[in-house]
Amino acid sequence: MPPMNLIAKFEIRDREKFPTQGAFVFAPNHYSEIDPVVMGMVAWKLGRLPRFMAKGSLFTIPVIGYLLTKSGQIPVQRGGSMRGSEPVRAAERLVENGQMLVVYPEGTLTRDPDMWPMRGKTGAVRVALEQNIPVVPAAHWGTQGVMPRYSKKISLFPRKHITVKIGDPVDLDRFRGRSLDSATLAEATTAVMDAITALLEDIREEKAPTKRWNPAEHDQKETGRFEA
């Protein structure tokens, strides 16, 4: 992805924590439509060919959609989930081939006003627990300079600086072997989101809100359907 080198300079911290072989779920934060291209570039720089479970709408964006399609990424349509047959089969194929799978636990761009990670969905941990592979968290900051949140316009100049921090695999051992019910998946997802948030706090050198943004809760408040 040479064009990205012209648009941004990457500072990758703790790169030794990034697995150089074997299957794993790579779980970054998400606040720009160009995140898949940025994190794909990071994986490529670290010697791995990334495969993404990305929302289907990204594949309709000029340039981004082309790059995602040509690189063999996997669209998950709106209203779908990691429990759908095609995402599951795709994940199984990747694990069999010892490949990495990038899954954004938030499922979409964070809606937190200050772009902190919001409440996660269970797709990343579901794949990891069903396939018995690790989840490696990551955080990045600076991508908003290339493409602001909710924008579809890329800023080419001046060259941007993107900082990425790789984390240790999230300890999911206490969840393995348990029934993957909603409570188990929610608890495991919280552990992953805590790890991602801590990495972003380190990059930004500030603390995230004590309560993570919950889109469903805020939607209910806005429409008058919130129940305490």
Score class of each variant (00 low, 15 high):
R78Q: 12
E227I: 08
E16V: 06
G123T: 10
A43Q: 03
M147L: 04
L109W: 00
P50G: 02
D171S: 14
M41E: 15
T190D: 13
L58D: 06
R119Q: 15
V63M: 01
P50R: 05
R119F: 13
K152I: 04
T189G: 06
Q73F: 09
P75E: 13
M115K: 03
L172H: 10
I12Q: 06
M82A: 15
P19L: 13
I74H: 06
N132Y: 06
A43S: 09
V63H: 01
K165T: 05
W44S: 11
P209C: 05
Y150L: 03
V76W: 10
Q131C: 14
F26P: 09
Y104K: 03
E92H: 08
A216C: 06
S155M: 08
L199I: 02
K207Q: 14
A128G: 09
V25C: 12
A188F: 05
T197R: 00
G98D: 05
R89I: 07
G84W: 08
D114G: 03
V125A: 11
G79S: 15
L199R: 01
T210F: 08
N97K: 12
A139E: 00
P169F: 15
I34Q: 00
M147E: 02
V38C: 08
T210V: 15
V95Q: 09
K55N: 07
A124S: 11
T108D: 13
A183C: 01
I162K: 03
A183H: 09
P117N: 08
P50M: 03
P148S: 04
L49P: 10
D173K: 15
N29A: 05
P2W: 15
Y31M: 01
H140K: 04
R178E: 13
A198S: 10
M147T: 00
F18S: 08
L172E: 12
R78I: 05
G79E: 10
L46M: 07
P75I: 09
T143D: 00
G72L: 02
D194F: 02
Q99C: 12
K55D: 06
R225N: 14
D35C: 05
V37G: 05
G123C: 09
P62H: 05
E222Y: 10
F10I: 03
D168F: 08
E106P: 09
L46F: 03
P209Y: 01
P113Y: 05
V88E: 06
Q144S: 08
G123S: 11
N97M: 10
A208W: 03
V42L: 06
E206Q: 15
V103K: 07
P62S: 04
G47Y: 05
E11K: 14
P2Q: 15
R78P: 05
D168V: 12
A216H: 07
V88C: 02
S32T: 08
R48A: 13
T163W: 01
D194G: 01
P50L: 02
F18R: 06
G56C: 05
P87S: 08
